[in-house]
């Protein structure tokens, strides 16, 4: 998982790493952070993800959504 702000990755090239060593096991994925000083103006903040191999699934439903929030501080 990674946070992309205007093309700049907050957590390096690969991002935060979770090792899913057993297929079919569930993991909670939650993280938070704070950026450096951003310039005044518009900033697009994205969550990005990838897998090292095989397939990753993020469970999303009305009862089990993911939530992503961002706010100025």
């Amino acid at each position: 998982m990674n946070i992309d702000i205007g093309g700049v990755k907050e957590f390096g090239t690969d991002g935060l790493y979770e090792n899913f060593d057993t297929a079919g096991y569930f993991r909670t994925i939650s993280f938070s952070g704070t950026t450096g000083i951003l310039a005044a103006g518009s900033h697009t903040i994205k969550v990005q993800w990838k897998v090292s191999a095989n397939q990753g699934t993020l469970l999303c439903s009305a009862n089990q959504p993911y939530q992503f929030s961002a706010w100025s501080i």
């Binding site: 569930f26 939650s30 310039a39 903040i45 994205k46 969550v47 999303c60 939530q67 992503f68």
Partner: peptide, 20 residues
Amino acid sequence: ATITLTLATPGRVAYSFIAS
């Protein structure tokens, strides 16, 4: 998972992602 914020002045942004 895309959010666009417009900052009136330079500053930091906090973010949070929660999923399972």
